[in-house]
Amino acid sequence: MSYIISDFRHPNAKVNDLGLSKRDYEGALSTLCAGCGHDSISAAIVQSFFEMNIEPHKVVKTSGIGCSSKTPTYFLGRAHGFNSVHGRMPSVSTGANMANKDLQYIGISGDGDTASIGMGQFAHVVRRNLNMIYLVMNNGCYGLTKGQDSATADVGSAGKKGVANQFAAIDLCQLALQLGAGYVARSFSGDKKQLVPLIKGAIEHQGFAFIDVISPCVTFNNTPSSTKGYEYVRDHLDATGTIDFVPERQELKIIHPEGTSKEVKLHDGSKLILKKNSHDYDLSSKREAMNTIETVREEHKILTGLIYLHEDPKDTHAKINSVDKPLNSLSQAEVCPGSAVLDDLNAGFR
């Protein structure tokens, strides 16, 4: 692994509508283990934001603590990032979002960071319907402390230490569904083709978008006995349908035979195109989504793809009825009542 990032740019490198190349969306060189699933997810994030023509500096990256939470350094180097404390990314994201509703927020967390220490904050940021992407890099173990089981490890799954986990696994997608998330998806770090459109859909989604990405830990949890290793996950994937993201102003290029695909419209007119398979269910039905996750699990498989989509137009700002202008841009004159009101005020206390 090289520890020097190259400055070389291909003269003919593709640029997006903003005239930026993919390099402009990259970050520092990763210090994660070679082959770590998280790096593939970072690459998918880079590609998604590049292709979606999002100005990198208009993005805010937040994270908690753990291997996953290091990754915001490795993508969108022109964006401000905030590596906060363990399990508390949701509150920092909430505060940041309250200050400026005009930026795009992406929070990166891990299974320890979300399903254990940060469970409370995760639950409540979903409830608030904060306008953000919440992406969990889920490897079923605590990588940075050398491989202890996490709360998403399946019962019976064993990592490098060879001891099978005895405790019930938390399914973060089901939890997010139950708590009211409007956009729920699951993917696999080894399936960029599926992951990129899911991230794009999440970027477009107004409100809370949750993506649980199974991302094998090559060092501690990539054993044959683990249900979160590359081999097991590849063999047990079961998608809700092949997915493509079509931006609002783009013509539909993917042609599926009549009746074999369906469109899911996002608020701005963009679409997610799903090629139907045996799991053809109403994606806006929470009950059917729950049901399908359970059905697939009973078959010892992992449901991936877009699982649920319901656009709740009221994100946190709408719920608390805040002004359209970002709160951090209000001037002193706009927020300070000033001395004019003091006579009345003081009189009320006499």
Binding site: P90, G95, A96, A99, N100, Q121, V323
Partner: peptide, 28 residues
């Protein structure tokens, strides 16, 4: 009729201070 303020009743004090830190970091 919209508010020039955001008051978030958090799930606990940890989240409360996290919100304050996130907002201050972002210039509010």
């Amino acid at each position: 009729g919209k508010n020039k303020f955001a008051i978030v009743q958090a799930e606990d004090e940890l989240a409360a201070i996290g919100i304050v830190i996130g907002a201050a970091w972002n210039g509010a």
